[in-house]
Design a protein around this nucleic acid. Structure first.
Lengths: 240, 240
DNA sequence: TAGTGGTCTAGACCACCAT
DNA sequence: TGGTGGTCTAGACCACTAG
């Protein structure tokens, strides 16, 4: 009998996944509460949470901090090697996107940032910070540093919907020269708060340096994605 | 007094990170045991493990299953858009690489694989499975399916050190046309065993389809990396 | 305000690794 | 074989969310 052996975290994960497979939950729906699961399966809440975390790491479910566990909708397909218009990208995948500016100001490059961008410390940069997501679900934290010296008048332009569109149309930047760095990481407390996630939540971090025709850096970019929300998909071809 | 409040997982993580910053550990070295930490800080082992998991998710430390916690050496820098010779790639980064073949055989494509590769179900494919790592530390699980029909005699060749070198030299494949898919995932029990990780360990999964000049798929590839071991780094340029 | 998730305690047992 | 990590129990309290 299974009831003689302790219920394991794996058992919990399996039970929940069966429920999902049976259609008891639809994408985006909230799962049963932790206490309810533990009582139903006759196990402790610690074990239930371990089981939930297994599915979370897989990306099957996700957490909204202190709000509960939800069935993950389809991942966003994203090609970071091309400059995509975020709103169009998501709309094209059947979800309702949103983008909200958190901060926009001119700053002076500190030492680490200057080193990363290959500019002199203190050089003025236009900084822009945004949260982006689908429906009411925040998915991605986006920070951009633009080199004002190479982009005259950039601070006066409206960057709201799309930085890349402005750079393309007004400054002839085609994003054809980039350096991308991608790694798994975790959310700081500030990032977690913005993305409605617990501190330390797993994320994918994308760092981008965009160069102009002369090879000078014009834009530096950091995207922090909730790990379950993203599927990077890139087409590499000779003409690219 | 801090001793009046409970010691938190964050406190544990901070204490360990301070020890690391002070040079009490060197990259690759084993950390203090969990029980030792819990006694030293006056907290429970559960809290200690939560603290360790915070640093693990960040990639600062990693686990060797049932062996202990270790300080993570530098990440491997890897550009998946170029066909790299794994052994050279790692050697160039100052580590001693190894590659071990787990399995090599001719199989017939099942339905999902056939769909993914765009071939007929049942088509014969050469399958190759390898573990790869640095020093004695397994980092990556690599599975390759090669389309024998387009690569005559491939099954008789020695693919041991490098599949890409064989395809390049003998079949004129230059890996210039690829589709890459990258996402966060977790290790199955078999994968975990090979990578000396616990079941459900966070990983980065890279799926690759390589096409020849005519646009036909010649190779399908899956790489499963321990999440803390990898830093994807890509240069995108017009001539690429 | 009730119920939830987030966290911590203080144990326990087992399988496994290293010696 | 001793000590380790992996796991589970059975509580508890708090901050917060949702109604």
């Amino acid at each position: 009998m299974a009831s003689l052996n302790p219920v394991t975290a794996f058992d919990v994960a399996q039970d929940l996944q069966q429920g999902i497979a049976r259609g008891l939950s639809v994408p985006g729906a909230r799962l049963e509460s932790e206490r309810s699961i533990s009582q139903r399966l006759g196990t402790s809440r610690v074990t239930v949470r371990e089981g939930l975390k297994l599915l979370e790491a897989e990306g099957v479910i996700y957490r909204s901090n202190r709000r509960g566990w939800y069935l993950t909708p389809a991942r966003i397909l994203y090609d970071p090697s091309r400059s995509a218009f975020f709103m169009d990208l998501l709309a094209g995948q059947g979800v309702t996107p949103f983008s909200r500016v958190l901060d926009q100001q001119t700053i002076n490059a500190d030492a680490p940032l200057a080193a990363q961008m290959g500019v002199s410390p203190g050089e003025p940069l236009l900084f822009l910070s945004r949260v982006r997501g689908a429906e009411d679900r925040p998915l991605c934290l986006d920070q951009v540093w633009l080199r004002s010296a190479l982009l005259p008048g950039i601070a006066e332009r409206n960057l709201e919907p799309s930085v890349s569109a402005v750079l393309r149309e007004h400054y002839g930047q085609d994003y054809s020269r980039q350096t991308l760095n991608i790694r798994a990481s975790t959310l700081t407390s500030a990032q977690a708060e913005t993305l409605l996630a617990p501190v330390g939540y797993s994320c994918i971090r994308i760092d981008r340096l965009v160069r102009d025709g002369a090879g000078q850096v014009v834009e530096c970019d950091t995207e922090i994605w909730r790990h379950e929300a993203l599927q990077l998909s890139m087409d590499i071809s000779p003409g690219h």
